[in-house]
């Protein structure tokens, strides 16, 4: 009797604990909740996931050559590109890269100077207004944490599993889908406003961004010993999505490594505490 009640209580409370946040999460995708987005296999998914250095380097190339013309990344510093757990560029590479960019600095003559690794990624537009004017009234969102500012909706009851699998890749799944989701012509009967483009996955389907990628748009610099990577929209989309995930969560790898140590410690400690507690309570009827 007691046992059965306890089990019911545990189930009910576990339900409340996990269902509550899950319900909140279910709405996360906002307007594009109705569109199904295919989940991709990412190297950084799951508890053992880590970033693929080569993929991040390719993604950075796509970002730099294509996206960065309109999108900023104001929270990413050049130095981040050579930090552990990232794309793994060398410090010299990063220094040379930074020097190619002009950084606004009030303390120098002319207000501009070449970048150094400590500088943040310069924004392509001086102000929001300038960005809006250059892009038909829409501000290209900053990329710094964009991969975490988007999500996908899982149908009931599948979202509940995300708490146990640690699924955090909704943002990149959405971004990749968006990048491959363009159509030259909207479906019949769809009124596409002027200056907009039809996209399967964008909320409302009418997106201000022209299709940014096309096959062969970026000529990948292959790392040594790396197999040739197809230069297709699909591959670009994957790579730049992965890069954006790293940009949003640069400490993912070290965070998980610490996590394993902490969990291992807690399990061992819990076992010892249980033994100690049991030993102390031995002989007490309770």
């Amino acid at each position: 009797m007691i046992k059965k009640k306890t089990i019911i209580a545990v189930l009910a409370l576990a339900g409340a604990l996990f269902a509550g946040p899950a319900f909140a999460q279910e709405e996360e995708a906002g307007g594009h909740g109705a569109v199904h987005i295919d989940k991709q296999s990412w190297t950084f998914a799951g508890i053992f996931g880590t970033y693929d250095e080569h993929q991040l380097q390719r993604g950075f190339q796509v970002f730099r050559e294509v996206c960065a013309n309109c999108h900023g990344a104001r929270l990413m510093a050049f130095r981040n590109l050579s930090e552990p757990g990232g794309p793994g560029f060398s410090e010299e590479q990063v220094k040379a890269l930074a020097a190619e960019y002009q950084i606004a600095d009030d303390t120098v003559d002319g207000g501009m100077r070449p970048g150094i690794p400590a500088d943040r990624w310069p924004s392509p537009f001086a102000s929001d207004q300038e960005a809006r004017d250059a892009n038909g009234g829409a501000i290209p969102p900053d990329f710094s944490v964009l991969a975490k500012a988007r999500g996908v909706t899982d149908a009931f009851p599948f979202w509940a599993f995300n708490y146990f699998t640690g699924y955090q890749e909704g943002g990149v799944d959405y971004i990749r889908a968006l990048l491959v989701g363009y159509h030259d012509e909207p479906p019949e009967g769809f009124e596409l406003p002027a200056g907009r483009f039809y996209n399967d996955y964008f909320p409302g389907h009418a997106i201000s961004m022209a299709p940014p990628l096309f096959d062969g748009a970026v000529d990948y610099v292959e790392a040594e010993g790396e197999a040739a990577v197809p230069e297709t929209v699909d591959q670009y989309a994957r790579d730049v999505s992965a890069f954006m995930m790293w940009m949003a969560e640069p400490h993912l790898v070290s965070r998980k490594e610490t996590g394993f140590r902490v969990l291992l410690f807690l399990v061992v400690f819990a076992g010892l505490m249980w033994a100690t507690k049991t030993r102390i309570w031995k002989g007490i009827e309770h």
Binding site: P21, Y167, Q168, G171
Partner: peptide, 16 residues
């Protein structure tokens, strides 16, 4: 588990 393996799952993407 949440802190190290799913730190954002209890929050809302819009807050990014």
């Amino acid at each position: 588990w949440f802190v190290f393996f799913a730190p954002d799952i209890l929050g809302h993407p819009d807050n990014y």
